Amino acid sequence: SIKEIEKEEIIKVLKEVNFNKKLASEILGIPLRTLYKRLKEYGI
């Protein structure tokens, strides 16, 4: 599903940037606030 793909992509990017959420949100092209929402939604 799209949610699974998105979750995997978020985890992959977070690992690449050593869990720097600000940098991860910039790489993913989403606002930091949205990233936090996704992390909560996906239980990351």
Rank of each mutant, 00 (worst) to 15 (best):
residue 30 I to W: 08
residue 23 L to M: 12
residue 11 I to Q: 07
residue 25 S to H: 03
residue 9 E to F: 14
residue 25 S to W: 01
residue 27 I to F: 06
residue 13 V to A: 09
residue 29 G to L: 05
residue 7 K to V: 09
residue 14 L to W: 05
residue 27 I to W: 06
residue 26 E to Q: 14
residue 35 L to I: 04
residue 33 R to K: 15
residue 23 L to E: 08
residue 2 I to G: 13
residue 28 L to H: 01
residue 16 E to C: 03
residue 14 L to V: 03
residue 37 K to I: 11
residue 20 N to G: 02
residue 26 E to T: 11
residue 16 E to T: 11
residue 39 L to W: 03
residue 44 I to F: 10
residue 24 A to Q: 00
residue 18 N to M: 10
residue 44 I to K: 06
residue 42 Y to V: 05
residue 2 I to D: 15
residue 6 E to Y: 08
residue 12 K to T: 08
residue 15 K to S: 10
residue 7 K to N: 06
residue 30 I to L: 09
residue 36 Y to G: 06
residue 21 K to V: 14
residue 8 E to V: 10
residue 29 G to E: 06
residue 38 R to H: 14
residue 28 L to F: 03
residue 4 E to S: 07
residue 10 I to A: 03
residue 20 N to W: 04
residue 6 E to W: 07
residue 17 V to T: 11
residue 34 T to L: 13
residue 35 L to E: 00
residue 30 I to F: 04
residue 34 T to E: 15
residue 37 K to H: 10
residue 35 L to N: 00
residue 37 K to Y: 08
residue 6 E to C: 06
residue 27 I to Y: 07
residue 28 L to I: 05
residue 19 F to T: 02
residue 44 I to L: 11
residue 10 I to S: 02
residue 41 E to P: 02
residue 7 K to S: 06
residue 15 K to W: 10
residue 7 K to A: 08
residue 32 L to I: 10
residue 37 K to V: 09
residue 6 E to L: 10
residue 24 A to E: 00
residue 15 K to V: 11
residue 20 N to L: 03
residue 6 E to M: 11
residue 33 R to Q: 14
residue 16 E to A: 14
residue 21 K to E: 06
residue 12 K to Q: 11
residue 30 I to E: 01
residue 38 R to Y: 15
residue 24 A to H: 00
residue 12 K to I: 06
residue 37 K to M: 12
residue 22 K to H: 11
residue 41 E to L: 07
residue 40 K to M: 11
residue 27 I to K: 11
residue 38 R to K: 15
residue 11 I to L: 14
residue 22 K to C: 05
residue 2 I to R: 03
residue 22 K to P: 08
residue 26 E to P: 02
residue 36 Y to E: 15
residue 6 E to A: 11
residue 18 N to G: 12
residue 35 L to W: 01
residue 14 L to I: 06
residue 29 G to C: 04
residue 23 L to V: 09
residue 16 E to D: 12
residue 20 N to R: 05
residue 42 Y to G: 03
residue 12 K to S: 10
residue 5 I to P: 12
residue 2 I to L: 14
residue 32 L to F: 04
